[in-house]
Every structure is written in structure tokens, then in C-alpha cells.
């Protein structure tokens, strides 16, 4: 049974002054949260004392202003950031849809890029081969699939990235904004694909500023404010307050 259990999670990191011969500037771009300076040390409190749990069937919408910690929380759930306090327990395979065009190589063919992206996603060669035809078909690239990625138009590249990224059967799906690609007709198809994935996934966590989308897709809402949990409530209650 898939589940997410977040207990008293905090993420605090030091703004390291990089050892440098240049004039001192903070080494890190702020990912959100609050900056505090104590004892000459600058730290970022990106997340503070977050606790919530989700079970199979839950669709959580993450809301909050820019810098509230939505992406940071997604990255903590995915395992890119290790929380400095508390505990995250994820039961189920976690897939994330952020930065879907990461790792595409312009000199390699579309087909080769599917293999590379699949490997990066942790798929086996058999899984990649099984999914290959469906990915190519969905991307509508036709014969272009055997040409170098650099010959693709922006729309074609986006269609390929979308097709590979969404060719999965996630148990837990993390998304930073709902993704789409291509022209109006493909957008429609992409929307249906996203809805299918969302239906299949055991749990979804979706960060978005699109309240209409969140109301349509989610059953729970978690609101963050400067890294703190401001509200965690059913979507109906959120609609009433919002």
C-alpha cells in the first residue's frame, strides 16, 4: 500500500561562504524559506516542522507564494534534498515530473535519447524496449525519431520529452506544475495523458499556482508560507476559505 508520512520535517542549510579569492558574496541562490543570521553564520530555513501523511488515493495540491517552499518540499519527498530534521517515509516507487527535458543530447537521435533518458530514470533495457514504440507513437515524430535531436523543432523536442517523461506507471507521482507540450491539438492529447497518469498513480503531489486545476485534480491542499505549514485541509474546506 502506498503512503507518504512526513514527521516534523525541517530543512535548514548554511549559506556557505565559498572559499574564494573574489569578494565575498553568498554562494547559494535562495530556494525559498527564510534567511537567518546568527553568530556570523547565515542559514536558510527552507522548511520548518512539517508534518502530514497521505494514503493511497490522495491527490495533494501544494500551494503558497513563490519561495514558500513548494519545490523544496517536492525535492525533499523525491530525495534530492535530505531533511536536516524529522523523517520522511515513502512507501511505493516515486516518480517525479520536473525538468522533463533534462539530459537530452542534441547530437544523439530521438531513439537514442529515449534510451538515455530511460536509463537515467532507472528503467532497465527491457523496460525501455517495451516502451519504445509507444513513446515514439505518442510523440508523433515519425521518421524524425532516427534523426539527431538537434534537427527537431522546439515543439517536436517538447513532444518527445513529454512522451518519455510520462511513459511511466507511477505509484507516487511528484509534479512541479502540470506539464504540457506542443501545439493546441497535442496539448489536448497531453492533457488526457496527464489525467490518465494521475488516475493510475496511487498518490499525487502537485505544486501549482493554478487554483482551478488544483480544485479539479486534488482532494487535499497543503498551504506553505515561508517554509511553514499554514494549512492542511480537504479541498472543499480550502475552496470555502479561499
Amino acid at each position: 500500500m502506498v503512503s507518504i508520512n512526513v514527521k516534523n520535517v525541517g530543512l535548514v542549510y548554511r549559506l556557505r561562504q565559498k572559499i574564494s579569492l573574489a569578494r565575498k558574496t553568498p554562494a547559494v541562490q535562495h530556494t525559498g524559506g527564510r534567511v537567518s543570521a546568527a553568530g556570523g553564520r547565515k542559514t536558510v530555513i527552507a522548511l520548518e516542522d512539517l508534518s502530514f501523511s497521505l494514503e493511497a488515493g490522495d491527490r495533494l495540491g501544494l500551494v503558497g507564494s513563490n519561495g514558500a517552499g513548494k519545490t523544496t518540499l517536492l525535492k525533499v519527498l523525491y530525495g534530492i534534498y535530505e531533511p536536516t530534521m524529522g523523517k520522511v517515509e515513502m512507501k511505493g516507487r516515486v516518480d517525479a515530473l520536473f525538468n522533463i527535458s533534462l539530459g537530452f543530447r542534441k547530437e544523439a537521435t530521438g531513439r537514442r535519447n529515449i534510451v538515455l533518458r530511460g536509463l537515467i530514470n532507472g528503467w532497465s533495457l527491457d523496460q525501455i524496449n517495451d516502451r519504445m514504440d509507444a513513446i515514439i507513437e505518442f510523440s508523433e515524430l515519425g521518421d524524425f525519431i532516427d534523426l539527431p535531436f538537434k534537427t527537431y523543432s522546439q515543439g517536436m523536442a517538447a513532444r518527445l520529452a513529454f512522451s518519455v517523461a510520462t511513459s511511466l506507471e507511477p505509484e507516487i507521482l511528484l509534479m512541479d506544475e502540470w506539464i504540457g507540450a506542443g501545439d493546441a491539438r497535442f496539448q489536448e492529447k497531453a492533457k488526457r495523458r496527464m489525467e490518465e497518469i494521475a488516475e493510475k498513480a496511487g498518490i499525487i503531489v502537485l505544486a501549482s499556482h493554478n487554483h482551478g486545476l488544483l480544485k479539479r485534480t486534488c482532494n487535499k491542499i497543503l498551504e506553505l508560507d515561508k517554509g511553514r505549514l499554514k494549512a492542511f485541509l480537504p479541498v472543499e474546506s480550502w475552496e470555502e476559505t479561499g
Partner: peptide, 9 residues
């Protein structure tokens, strides 16, 4: 950088 910030490899 992009890989380190975007994947769990």
C-alpha cells in the same frame, strides 16, 4: 549541476 539538482542519481 542540472542532474544533481534534478535527479536522485
Amino acid at each position: 549541476e542540472n542532474f544533481i539538482k534534478g535527479t536522485t542519481l
